[in-house]
Computed example of a mutant assay.
Amino acid sequence: MTATANPLPRAHVAPRSNRTRGLWLAAMLALLAVLCALSVAVGTRDVGGDDIVAALQGQVETIAQAAVAARIPRTVLAALAGAALGVAGTIMQGVTRNPLADPGILGVNLGASLAVAVAVAFFGIASALAFIWVAIFGAGATAIFVYAIGSLGRGGPTPLKLALAGVATSVAFVSLVLAVMLSHGEVAGGLQSWQVGGVGGATFARMNHVLPFLAVGFAISLACARKLNSLALGDEMAAGLGERVALARGLASLGAILLCGATTAICGPIAFVGLMVPHLCRLLAGVDHRWLLPLSALVGACLLIASDIAGRLIARPGELDVGIVTAFIGAPVFIWIVRRARVRDL
């Protein structure tokens, strides 16, 4: 994948010292620890320190302890999903050199969602492992389709064409998912709640199936950091430096697709995390992907945990799914990014 525009105007990607980047990493780690503690303690029912300690020791004798026991895997899943989507968004923006690239905007998450909906409704899949493989296949096929559509016409795959192709594909896939649900009422309820995107009801048993895919996705993504730095210089410059451009782009995209597909399989489609996180991280740490990818993982985890906490507090005694909260936050950010980008670059 390629495009002609840089992810951000030059003024916003000034170099950062390694010391500054290390401080930002440490700050995000500290923030993540605080948010994890808040996620465990805050919800429909507030709990005290004694109940948290007891729940961590495996006790569920009181309602408060049971609430903590349910929040712990939920917090872990939010951290993993946020980290995966943050890294995937950074890779997509780096591979396409597109400031609007995001698993949601490019339709990758909804491609995974449609694949799962079709597999559940027409083929009756029920195992967690099958969900993951189907979601990864749908994410990969959609990424290829959107890139092919966005490459048509004069100028090749420009950021605006890719974004428009992704948005159009997303709208079409949403309609297809709704058609599947309407024609298969027996699975509509489960698909509808999953389609919103959330981390409620998480268990460690469910997460065990997705962890190997996330681990491979993170490993591939981090291993491609230097390749992404080369691709940022342009295809010709990267090739002149000895980089195998097609291989680098394919490997990085594979890592992003694994992360998107696995996350969508267990959480449902969660939009805008992969759009917001890379832009914020570039402001903090510059454009070196060796620092940008780890920082994106931490910031993505913080964002999704914070969104989950906000969803619980806003709708007490009920809750808003995290996918709804990120959509409320991400839509204005998307508009801001589009307005700040120069029209000729899009």
Results as ranks from 00 to 15, higher is better:
Asn6Arg: 15
Ala67Gly: 03
Ser170Met: 12
Phe122Met: 13
Ser151Pro: 12
Arg339Phe: 02
Val338Asn: 00
His209Pro: 01
Ser151Arg: 14
Gly201Phe: 11
Trp133Arg: 01
Leu162Ser: 06
Leu100Phe: 15
Met28Ser: 11
Val273Pro: 01
Arg74Asn: 11
Ile63Lys: 08
Leu280Arg: 00
Ile105Trp: 02
Leu228Asp: 01
Asn208Leu: 15
Arg312Phe: 13
Arg312Cys: 12
Ile270Gly: 04
Leu38Ser: 11
Val34Lys: 06
Thr158Val: 10
Ala310His: 04
Gly111Val: 10
Val116Phe: 05
Leu152Trp: 04
Leu114Ser: 03
Leu313Tyr: 11
Gly250Arg: 11
Ala112His: 07
Ser170Gly: 14
Gly104Trp: 08
Gly156Asp: 06
Tyr147Trp: 14
Val53Pro: 01
Ser17Glu: 10
Cys302Arg: 00
Thr158Asn: 07
Gly311Leu: 13
Gly198Ala: 09
Leu162Asn: 10
Ala115Cys: 06
Leu303Met: 07
Gly48Gln: 12
Trp24Tyr: 10
Arg340Gly: 00
Leu31Ala: 15
Ala331Met: 00
Gly94Tyr: 01
Phe218Cys: 08
Leu106Gln: 02
Leu182Thr: 12
Asn109Gln: 08
Phe173Thr: 05
Pro99Gly: 08
His12Ser: 12
Arg226Met: 03
Ala54Glu: 06
Leu251Met: 11
Val42Leu: 15
Val333Cys: 09
Ile149Lys: 13
Arg342Val: 07
Ile52Thr: 05
Trp133Cys: 11
Cys260Trp: 05
Leu228Met: 14
Ser127Pro: 09
Ala115Phe: 01
Gly111Ala: 09
Ala215His: 03
Ala64Phe: 09
Ala26Thr: 05
Ile149Gln: 07
Ala128Pro: 10
Ala252Cys: 08
Ile324Pro: 06
Gly185Leu: 13
Gly43Met: 04
Gly82His: 02
Glu61Gly: 12
Gly318Arg: 14
Val68Asn: 10
Val120Ile: 15
Leu251His: 00
Ser17Asp: 07
Asn109Gly: 11
Ala26Asn: 04
Ala66Leu: 14
Ala265Gly: 04
Asn109Met: 09
Gly189Leu: 09
Ser193Trp: 05
Ala78Lys: 11
Ala81His: 08
Leu280Thr: 05
Leu110Arg: 13
Leu25Ala: 13
Trp194Ile: 01
Gly155Ala: 14
Ala215Tyr: 07
Ala121Cys: 14
Ala168Val: 11
Gly198Val: 02
Ala248Ile: 01
Val343Ile: 15
Gln192Trp: 01
Arg282Ser: 00
Ile257Thr: 14
Ala119Arg: 05
Ala70His: 10
Pro159Ile: 02
Met207Trp: 14
Leu320Ser: 09
Leu259Arg: 11
Arg45Glu: 13
Ala219Arg: 02
Pro159Glu: 05
Arg45Leu: 15
Leu313Ile: 15
Gly250Tyr: 02
Gly138Lys: 04
Asn98Gln: 05
Gly311Trp: 08
Asp321Cys: 07
Ala121Met: 08
Ala306Ser: 12
Met1Trp: 02
Gly185Phe: 06
Gly250Val: 04
His209Gly: 07
Leu320Met: 14
Gly89Ser: 03
Val187Ala: 04
Ala301Ile: 02
Ala81Gln: 01
Ala69Thr: 11
Val108Asp: 09
Arg45Tyr: 13
Val53Ile: 11
Gly200Arg: 13
